[in-house]
Simulated scan of single mutants.
Amino acid sequence: MTNYALALDIGGTKIAGALVDRSGNCSFRSELKSIPQEREAMFGQVVSCIRQVLAQADIQVQDIAGMGVGVPGKVDREKGIAVYQNNLPWDHFPVVRRLREIFSVPVILDNDVCMAAYGEWSMAGKSANETFVYLTVSTGIACSIIHQGSFVRGAGFAGELGLLKIQEGAGLEGSLEAIASGPAIERRMQAEQDRQPGYTTREVIRAYRQGHPVATQVVREAVSCLARGLHTVISLLDPHRIVLGGGVMQNHPELLTDLKRELQPLLIPEQHAALDRIRVTTLRGDAGLIGAGLRVF
């Protein structure tokens, strides 16, 4: 079983775990709800998820090559510490040390978007001659850059595209994440409609497709702001490939057409070829698990 790694994709809503083989195939998947209110309870859920995967596979932890773990926010990869997240209670939490105290196998820790980027890049051929960008639009917005086979990390906080400041018409102002993430779309719709219970992103986008005037305004503004974010990425990096993932895009791939329509006028003619290099993920929710697993090998 050393041809398998145990992968974890840890978020503020859920913890996903699975075995991943060297070809990127996932099996024995398990999911548990996150407990973001308390750090030890949250860690206990992670341990439970690992044990569920091992039990389903009917193997011992010594039978795997190691564990790959993706967590949100800033991480210290060398020290194995989850430094900062806005949706988990793990301020400077020693994830790797704590896991190794229970499971005596190698543990690789990285940011969850980097893990998903690695999964997408690997399954797309793992070209070391390109600049590859993975952009997630989900609970938050962020991107990860792989240039000639290596991550571009800067001083440690590179890729936080969601922090980009946006000034749009009609007084719309704030960070890209505050306008175009899933929770932002829900919150802005709720502010206009005042419905109990509130709207889900799926409901807002469905209403947009049906011509609902408020939903149309909310989604069009979100798409317009995402286009500005993509314009920044293209102008700065001119990537060979851009893959869009996260719940908002993978559940609504039809938004890519709208996004390209908003993006095209922002580009000069020499940049128009970039429109054909943008696609929506085909790995859907497994990208983070696949990347985390493959990083072990």
Rank of each mutant, 00 (worst) to 15 (best):
E254F: 14
R241S: 13
T131V: 15
A215D: 00
T282L: 13
I234D: 05
I234R: 07
V47N: 06
S27L: 09
G66I: 08
V280T: 06
I234T: 00
H252W: 03
I141Y: 01
A128P: 00
I234E: 00
G68K: 11
Q190V: 04
L164H: 01
T257I: 11
W90C: 07
G125T: 08
P269D: 13
I50W: 00
M42G: 15
D9T: 10
E186C: 14
L283H: 03
L294S: 05
L135P: 00
G171N: 10
L8E: 08
E177I: 07
H240R: 09
E203M: 13
P94W: 12
A117E: 04
K260W: 07
D21P: 05
V248C: 07
G140S: 08
D91K: 15
L109K: 09
Q217N: 11
E186V: 05
L236T: 15
C26G: 00
I81T: 11
R209K: 15
V218M: 03
G66Q: 01
Y4I: 02
Y199K: 09
D9S: 13
D286R: 08
Y134A: 10
L266K: 12
I205C: 09
V137E: 01
L255G: 11
N111Y: 05
C49R: 03
F93K: 04
V243I: 15
G174A: 06
I102M: 15
H147K: 15
F297E: 02
L6E: 04
L54P: 01
Q196R: 09
T257C: 04
A117S: 13
S150F: 10
N86I: 12
T232K: 10
V95G: 05
V296S: 03
A65W: 00
V71W: 02
Y208R: 09
E186G: 05
A227C: 08
Q56L: 14
F28C: 12
E40M: 12
I35C: 13
R77E: 14
D91T: 13
A117R: 04
D63N: 14
T200E: 05
V133K: 05
N129E: 15
G149D: 07
R188A: 03
S23Q: 15
R187N: 14
L176P: 04
G44N: 14
F151S: 01
Q190Y: 07
S235R: 13
G70Y: 08
M249T: 03
M42L: 15
L32V: 12
P94Q: 02
Q210C: 06
D258L: 14
R153W: 03
V53G: 07
L259Y: 06
E160F: 04
L263I: 05
A184D: 01
A7N: 11
G247D: 09
I59Q: 08
G119M: 03
S27W: 05
R279L: 09
V20M: 09
R209I: 00
G66F: 11
A158W: 05
I166T: 01
E168D: 15
A124Y: 02
